[in-house]
Nucleic acid binder design. Structure first.
Lengths: 128, 128
DNA sequence: CACGTCAAGTCAACATGGTTGACATTAGTG
DNA sequence: CACTAATGTCAACCATGTTGACTTGACGTG
């Protein structure tokens, strides 16, 4: 399982490294891609890390203009995060590396096998 | 996938923490359990970490008498590692937590599903 | 036997990705 | 105004790794 995780993320990590980014950056991009306009507090909850730990990678992404943050119109306290075009591109490319690996693996077991894999992973992940 | 890995190791990590141990210690115990009389150099290769990184956790395990090391009879240069009874107990308990989680997940998809899961994981892991 | 080499052990500096705690800023709310 | 919520920032610290340089003990061979 450990080696599985590593095998999946290896190529993506290499791509990210070329962009001067790493896993935590990708995790942020990934979450924001799937939940546009997420607030920072919510992001912290999803990632399960402290705001201080989030600070560094998040700032880099804002500087690089891969993310934008703006105050919400009415709920002016929180800031909403969104991917820029460039951010979307990076997130896509990085995730594509991972998806490619998964697709190839799924091809070996067919659709029912892929479904079984997903069921197992969900069952394990829910074990909190 | 990330959450899957975490779900699997969570309980085991909690158990290990109570013993004042953590993931690297378990990795050592796990490997030595499956390859008794393994030399230190070989252990380094299997774990894929540097000897300096191995040093700390390994020493703790020797101090705690979860492992023994003795020079090999004829090949006196290398040291052979072996679990003590206590070491075997700890390794079993920690691994049992992980195995329990997996077994429950596999139960939801039956034997063919479990096999598919394994095939997928191997395919991914080989992607080096 | 001296010398080279191999396995292991040790010391130090550093990187990464986190943690806690304390405190500041900014926006809304009774 | 006083309070609370969401965010931001500073500093000290920890775990787990890295590289490089050096030591020690056990062989093996010219």
């Amino acid at each position: 399982m450990y080696y599985g995780w590593r095998g999946m993320t290896l190529e993506a990590d290499e791509y990210l490294a070329k962009q001067g980014l790493s896993r935590p950056h990708h995790r942020i991009l990934y979450v924001v891609a799937r939940r546009p306009d997420i607030a920072i507090g919510a992001l912290i909850d999803v990632l399960g890390i402290s705001k201080q730990a989030l600070n560094r990678p998040l700032h880099l992404l804002l500087e690089r203009k891969l993310l934008t943050s703006k105050r919400s119109p009415e709920q002016h306290r929180s800031k909403l995060l969104r991917l820029t075009e460039a951010g979307r591109r990076v997130e896509q490319k990085a995730s594509d590396h991972e998806r490619k690996v998964m697709r190839e693996a799924f091809d070996r077991v067919g659709a029912p096998g892929a479904e079984a894999w997903t069921t197992v992973m969900k069952a394990i992940a829910d074990n909190n």
